[in-house]
Amino acid sequence: MKDMMTIFRREFASYFATPLAYVFLVIFLVMQGLFTFYVGQFYEREQADLVSFFAYHPWLYLFLVPAIGMRLWAEERKSGTLELLLTLPVNTSAVIAGKYLAAFAFTGLALAMTLPIWITVNWLGDPDNGVIVTGYLGSLLMAGAYLAIAAAMSALTKNQVVAFILAVSVCFLFMVSGLPMVLDTAGGILPGPLVGVVANLSFLAHFENLQKGVVGLSDVVYFLTVIALWLGINRVIVESKREAG
């Protein structure tokens, strides 16, 4: 636990060691604004809710979260510091968790910076704040799932750009598996129950459930399972890459 915090602190601080973090936060907020107000027509809808805000998160995260996660391992492998890190008397699990949580905290920070929009809807109208809270929870969990994928992909390569592309691709698969278009196609090939499984695997279905204001345990468990699974994969990749040098 202490080891994990040591790794966490170093990793989290390293996000702010370059101006890149601030650039990223600005881009994140601008994109959020663009989608919410322009594409999502926040004002035109004249509804006191954040539906138009959350609706685009799955798509925004598809690119923004891999950008946060891509450096986690690729950079360590490229610069050789992985050897330094893994020969310290710290468990590999603590390293994996510490690094992931640092990236997750950074993601959470970016999301927290959108809180003014919540204040705005409360000022403009009378929204159901319960729905907004679960909306944020769902958004954070989904970002966490994307991030776990991005972390694992980052361990696959020394090149951050490659890590980014791999992460976007895998995240995209996890997302679109819930789109009607994909499910219709799948329905033509697979038997009914399997289509249900594919749909259930998608981030979208679980994310949307949480947007409705109900915290379904199954949805929370789903995201936590996905995160745990990909962190496990992350570990396997790190161990095998350590052997490959």
Binding site: D3, R9, R10, G80, T81, L88, P89
Partner: peptide
């Protein structure tokens, strides 16, 4: 251990880096 080529975290200061190493050693 000093690995070949002495890899370091370039974005840290020696003070920050050594404090990190100390913490990692408990």
């Amino acid at each position: 251990y000093l690995p070949e080529g002495a890899p370091l975290y370039g974005d840290m200061t020696p003070a920050g880096f050594l404090a990190f190493i100390a913490a990692a050693h408990g």
